[in-house]
Computed example of a mutant assay.
Amino acid sequence: MMLLLLIAQTIAPITPSPPSAGTQPVDSIEARYERCVDLATGNPPEGVIEGTGWRANGGGFYARQCLGIAYANQAKWVPAAQEFEAAAQEAEVARSTRAAQFWAQAGNARLAAGDTAKARAALDAALAAGTLVGLQRGEALFDRARTMVVAGDLESARIDIDQALTLAEDDPLIWLASAALARRMDDLPRARKDIAEAFRRSSDDPSVYLEIGNIAAFAGDADGAKSAWNDAIRVAPSSEAAASARDALKQFSDAPPQP
């Protein structure tokens, strides 16, 4: 029997970067920034109001980043990306090293919006700056790898994901993506190894169970695939991963469990 293979998509979170000294007193910038980001995360519509007002009164790229966070937390990905891009451009003019962080956030938002071409351009700019290090660089490499997968450039995606794993090895989403990529590249041992790492870090994620089922299906293990897809439904019945698992289980005569 040909088994159905389904791939889970993941979106990395948008995170703020704290301000540094500029033309305003540091305390003033930090206090305004913290207030704006608190609203952007806790009450996003109010965050938009706060960020818009601050931007109009000289808030510069920090106000734009705050606006981007507020829009992202409402899943308004296009305006979020536009604000992050504007923040990056203003930061470049100001010769601020924060520009790379803003480009990375823009790329993440463009990915969430489904615009992989603009996401790739933003992430290329973020990584080319050379100022992203550690976890931030790892997450940007991961996002760029996702744009490469969409473009069908799996070899380049593998290079970026392998680098991302060395910098952000505690992120289960990168291990999950690495496992799915290995499966697509017909590397079953690597797929099994990496999904085990994802499971070790996030055993309650339905997307991990979904991919365990995909890998089992790829290996021709129908019972293993059914078991894992049923687990995805059990763990989070209302999730997108559970919906994908239900679709995969339709190829079998036995119905999936009801939530």
Rank of each mutant, 00 (worst) to 15 (best):
G114H: 09
Q105N: 15
A242P: 04
V149M: 12
G22W: 00
A242I: 01
A228G: 09
R35I: 12
R144M: 08
A81F: 01
Q251H: 11
A117K: 14
A126N: 11
L181E: 05
S244L: 15
E155A: 07
G224T: 11
L167G: 09
D162W: 00
L4I: 15
V37D: 09
I195F: 00
G47T: 04
A119C: 03
D38K: 15
L39N: 01
G22F: 00
L173Q: 09
L188S: 07
F218L: 12
I215E: 01
P257N: 12
I233L: 05
A217T: 12
G213Y: 06
D143V: 10
A222S: 12
L181M: 06
I69G: 02
F142C: 05
I215F: 00
T166C: 09
L3F: 06
L5M: 15
Y62P: 02
A109Q: 06
C36N: 09
N214R: 05
R246P: 00
S203E: 13
A219G: 07
L188V: 06
M185A: 11
L127M: 06
K226T: 09
N108D: 04
Q251P: 12
G107F: 00
G47D: 03
V37N: 08
I215L: 03
A70T: 07
V235P: 08
T147M: 07
V93M: 10
L154N: 14
W229P: 07
G138A: 13
T15S: 15
L249N: 03
L181W: 05
V150L: 07
A219K: 04
M2T: 15
V208L: 08
F199I: 09
A228W: 11
N214W: 01
I159G: 08
K76F: 07
V48I: 15
Q24H: 08
M1D: 01
R64A: 13
A255I: 11
R144Y: 06
I161G: 00
W77A: 05
A222G: 04
Y71V: 04
R137L: 14
L181T: 01
D162L: 02
G130Q: 02
P25C: 10
